[in-house]
Design a protein around this nucleic acid. Sequence first.
DNA 1: ATAGGGTTAG
Length: 580
Amino acid sequence: MLLRRRTTSYFRNLTTETKQGSDYSKDQNFTHILNEICTITRTKPRWENTLLSQYPSFNFSNPNFFLHYLNHQNNTFLSLRFLHWLTSQCGFSPDQSSCDALFDALVDAGACKAAKSLLDDCPDFNPKPASLENYIRCLGKGGMVGDAVDVFFRLKKVGFLPLVSTFNVSLLACLKVGRTDLVWKLYAHMIESGVVGSIDVETVGCLIKAFCAEGKVFDGYELLRQVLEKGLCPDNTVFNSLIAGFCKESQYARVSEILHIMISMKCNPGIYTYQEVINGLFKRKKNDEGFRVFNDLKDRGYFPDKVMYTTVIKGLCDMGLLGEARKLWFEMICKGLVPNEYTYNVMIDGYCKIGDLVEAKKLYDDMCDRGYAENVVSYTTMISGLCLRGRVDEALSLFHEMSRKGVARDLISYNSLIKGLCQNGELVKATDLLHELLAQGFEPSVSSFTPLIKSLCEVGETGVAMRLLKDMHDRHLEPIASTLDNIIVGLCKEGNVAQGMEWLLKMISWKLKPKEQTFENLIDGLSQEDRLDDILIVLDLMFREGYRLKESIIHSLVSKFCKENFHFPKLCLEEFGERN
DNA sequence: ATAGGGTTAG
């Protein structure tokens, strides 16, 4: 609605501007034809054919005609399509003023892709610098930050310097899509262009956020100190990024320092900042610490919002403290905060994880009664919960219900069910599901493969498992350590110890830590084949990983080595000595 | 703006 209004008023201005110099405006016949053309292009899906048959001799290639069309049409997207047609079918080449009008209208409507295609289609068209500056903002809003940066360089070539605020919104746009590389590129360009004097606190705020996003929180912090020394204070979002960054590095002293800076600068930390702190603590598994901060906040008179309650409830559920979580659930309701689908889901998941499916189902039904529709997340939560208790048939029927109710499945819902099927020995169904996932065009993740490979190894299908591992490799998916443990143990069980040994060496070269059990399986297999040299290699690697040998294995190894009259290397003697 | 489901094995 807004879009249409803005476009319309733009063309109203254009109309008054172009009426004066036009020969056609007095020509009733022309106006009539123009109206007809506008109507046809608006209403007929195949308007091209109609136009050519109805107006065979009309001069579509007159630039004035297109400008008039723009005035009447008031639909920038249709106008762009019409322009395509005119240029390709009627040899029309739009003049500067037509292009200007259309370009500005597209930018005004936020249609950055269309504006870009206009530029691409008309290489001779040179928009006014001010239009390009608006275009930059439009590209940023649309997330097309790479193109936005290119336009800055284009403006530089014609000697036009955009406003600092244009730079700033573009920097923010780059941050939003995670392109910190472009933040630095654009910043370097700012310095070169000579805006350095007018760089403001917002610019620096973007740089601090960029540092945080790249995990260089301390660089961001130093920059903050510099800004503060100049008596400037960035907005809360900048402080929040720093807090989130320091939480990630478990530097809680710094977190508290930032909070104090905020208070001293009168940028009082609000609910969002505390949300960041609590979230950071819970993400770093400092749940009880997070819970403490939460209670402190309440004591100090803060009113946690729904998001904060949801975060804390989830943290308590993860700790297995369902009773505490439930208390908070009722507390928030008492304060007038109605649980939403997020809150319901963490609570349902909490009950599923402790195996209380009855309570989980009760909440699930309650959620639906309150008008929250089942969605892909709530389905996946229940599917995982059912699988965890071995109720895989019910999980499967929920999965089918999803498509009946028109809830689109996603990668996680597939992965969850694959895992559940594997845990319950339904490998054929699990494999079918992996194929279905691929056929649906999803890009599989590590979690799509991990449970299948594990189960295949356990049932003696290590060959099939290794083909899947190869498939992962081809997709540039790196297996987790335990997947390789599974392969090695599987190979040992099949008597293929040599290949198991190869995988162990590969695993260690990839800096993945094998399990103790994996070493023990290999030693057992090698021992049966009397490959004493290889046993020593495995023992060496095992000790380096910090494992110790079990008593029973020591005994069998010692007698084995003695029987072979083998010379013990120093390392093994030390290890054996330690135990005696 | 911030929050929810898969990601060790048991």
